[in-house]
Nucleic acid binder design. Structure first.
Length: 628
RNA sequence: GGCCCCGUAGCUCAGUCGGAUAGAGCAACAGAUUCCUAAUCUGUAGGUCGCAGGUUCGAAUCCUGCCGGGGUCACCA
């Protein structure tokens, strides 16, 4: 279990941070950075955050000068993109939020604040609208600076210091080691992995962790199943598998290997002799299987934690003893569930945790009648272990069928960490596997069960990953094997990849057309970007400049799916531009007779490729340079 | 029956710690291809945000109660 001392800092601090920069930032020679790039690289990043700070400064000044009451609470002041782009680039609710405390009418206060905002260089236009919104428009040069910023950052664009190095533990998959992964596990794997990447991009120190449920009855059943397969491998006819065992053929190969290695050494002996070694052998084999599936999906973990090891090291006894000392464990009899009482329900004396003191509906048993711990008890100890390893923030990604378990786990974390730990459980809803609109019929018995690996092999890991992230985790997801590989607008994977590939294609053509030109990002950043004059061109820059903010808000909300919608939006605007060039040749990216204009437009699309790649990186999807 | 999640255009879904006239894709209809990949794009049309109350300057968003769908319900993990 919890090996001591391997804190997240050790593993992540240098490694992840540096790797990110090595990979994304091409080395630059300081002497050759164009002045324009240096200006832009004063890193405004989240521009809304930037202007919020400016606005707060203006408000503070007004407070100091007596124009506004001292100690105005500005916590609710927001600077955001307006819903309606017609309202400008940014809007703030400041006047409406502060009006009451300032003793002024919203519109009057808005005019006062607007006057201050007009003094800022980057802002071209300020107007008061509606009930007291202040709408702002930024100057074109501001947007061109953002473009240079993107070119300087490359695929690293969007990285943020929001997390400030705070350690976060993301536990996901944690599938029972009793067989290969199914499609539902795959969703949890992708959501957890992408969420972890997103948090890392937002400046958190993330650890990806897998909890191996290798204690309890299910892995004993696995051991017995392996023993049957082992006897079979030695020539015995074993017939039908009894209920509760695992009849899948994935145990055949491990059993053969065991028969090969040990011969008939385990035949004719008591279960007590072979159960434990068979369990260990079977779990190891299944974890190899699962690790293979995960590798095929491109998911790797920083740590695997074993439930059995945790129990054996006394972690559960220690955690429970602590709760016992605080009077949170008692022996008692639960009431039957309200409404529907199970038929076999009977009053039973149990060892219970006072979950109701921490927001749960009933107290929860921690010990089985045979004296061993319940799953809940070990899970409590496991979460305490994570907390003690330095993770005040813990995220668990579970299947929706575990929804009934969330409250008690939250209660346990509250109790064990005395309120200092925070647990967010992301429940992943079911995946409906379809093929051309028709549900894929699956039956373990008939051998038509479709595993995650089958799907990856059929459509590719990048497609699986992207599609799994096109819905929020708590919504059902239709996964149509046919639709996800179609090359059309309604397939978001294709649509986004197509945009990236098109850009790469243009860059290749440009290199042919201007063989002597330096088309590196640094050089493009020095292009005369004021040649970008079409509204659609600047609109694309605006959208891309929203990426840092999106990274931060999606990371804070723990919602990686938002990235998919952002990518779709960037791709849409790019394809739009491309097609304007179809209608009007003067808008094509490559203008043979106008080198400066070409360079400016290449700067725009190179930045677009970076932003697309930056987002796809979060998803663990490889941006393609060519389709087909 | 208790608890949790979901309910937004004909369909599939977005909707930012409460913001202005609720968005996109598909399907429908009308268009664009001597051209950097038309595998794309332009335009039109389409909604009582499940229902009813409440909170406030302001609600798809927060609260309460219903309706509909799914999940789950004491020694399974």
């Amino acid at each position: 279990m919890a090996g001591p001392g391997r804190g997240p800092q050790l593993r992540r601090h240098g490694a992840a941070g540096r790797r990110l920069h090595r990979r994304h930032d091409r080395p630059r020679r300081p002497g050759r950075i164009p002045p324009a790039v240096r200006r832009a690289s004063q890193n405004i990043m989240n521009l809304f955050q930037h202007f919020r700070a400016e606005l707060i400064q203006i408000i503070d000044d007004l407070c100091r000068s007596g124009a506004l009451p001292a100690d105005l609470d500005t916590a609710r002041v927001a600077v955001e993109p307006p819903r309606d782009p017609g309202h400008g680039d940014m809007a703030t609710n400041a006047a409406m939020v502060l009006a009451k405390a300032a003793g002024a009418r919203p519109r009057d206060l808005a005019e006062t604040l607007a006057a201050g905002l007009r003094g800022l260089d980057a802002i071209r236009e300020v107007e008061v609208a509606g009930p007291g919104f202040i709408n702002m428009r930024l100057g074109d040069s501001f947007w061109r600076d953002r473009l240079r910023e993107i070119l300087a950052a490359g695929r690293a664009y969007g990285e943020s210091g929001l997390g400030a190095g705070q350690a976060v533990n993301v536990e996901f998959v944690s599938a029972n080691p009793t067989g290969p992964m199914h499609v539902g596990h795959g969703r949890g794997a992708v959501v957890g992995d992408a969420l972890a990447s997103l948090l890392a991009k937002a400046g958190f120190l993330v650890t990806r962790e897998y909890y191996i449920n290798d204690a309890g009855a299910q892995v004993e059943a696995l051991a017995r199943s392996l023993h049957l397969r082992y006897r079979e491998a030695l020539g015995e006819a074993v017939g039908e598998f009894p209920d509760g065992l695992y009849p899948g053929d994935y145990l055949v190969a491990p059993a053969r290997a065991l028969a090969e290695a040990d011969g008939d050494a385990w035949l004719g002996r008591d279960e007590g002799d072979w159960l434990e070694p068979f369990r260990a052998y079977a779990v190891a084999a299944m974890m190899d299987l699962i690790r293979d599936d995960l590798a095929a999906l491109g998911v790797t973990f920083d740590r695997f934690s074993s439930e059995r090891a945790l129990v054996q090291a006394g972690g559960v006894d220690a955690a429970l003893a602590e709760l016992q000392d605080r009077g949170l464990i008692y022996d008692g009899v639960l009431e039957p569930p309200k409404g529907k009482t199970p038929e076999d329900w009977e009053p039973r004396q149990q060892t219970l945790f006072r979950a109701t003191d921490f927001g749960d509906d009933v107290d929860r048993p921690v010990r089985k009648s045979d004296g061993s711990w319940t799953y809940f008890a070990t899970d409590m100890a496991y979460h305490l272990d994570k907390f003690r390893r330095g993770y005040a923030t813990m995220i668990d990604v579970w299947g929706a069928d575990h929804g009934g378990y969330v409250k008690r786990m939250a209660a346990a974390v509250k109790a064990l960490t005395e309120g200092r730990g925070e647990l967010d459980v992301k429940l992943c809803q079911m995946v409906n596997l379809l093929d051309g609109g028709a549900p894929v019929k699956m039956s373990k018995r008939a051998g038509t069960f479709v595993t995650l690996r089958d799907v990856i092999d059929q459509v590719g890991k990048d497609v699986v990953r992207f599609i799994m992230l096109t819905r929020k985790n708590d919504a059902h997801l239709d996964f149509d094997l046919k639709a996800v590989t179609e090359q059309s607008r309604e397939n978001p994977v294709f649509y986004v990849q197509y945009a990236h590939a098109r850009i790469c294609s243009v860059m290749r053509h440009a290199a042919d057309a201007f063989p002597d030109a330096d088309l590196s990002p640094d050089a493009l950043a020095a292009a005369p970007l004021d040649r970008l004059a079409d509204p659609a061109e600047l609109a694309l820059v605006r959208t891309m400049a929203g990426w840092p903010r999106l990274v931060e808000s999606a990371a804070e909300a723990h919602e990686p799916h938002r990235v998919a919608y952002f990518l779709d939006e960037v791709a849409t605007q790019f394809h739009m531009l491309w097609n304007k060039g179809k209608d009007d040749a003067s808008l094509r990216f490559i203008a043979l007779e106008d080198r400066d204009l070409t360079l400016a437009r290449l700067a725009l699309i190179q930045a677009t490729a970076f932003v697309l790649a930056s987002g796809l990186d979060v998803f663990g999807v490889q941006p393609v340079e060519e389709l087909r």
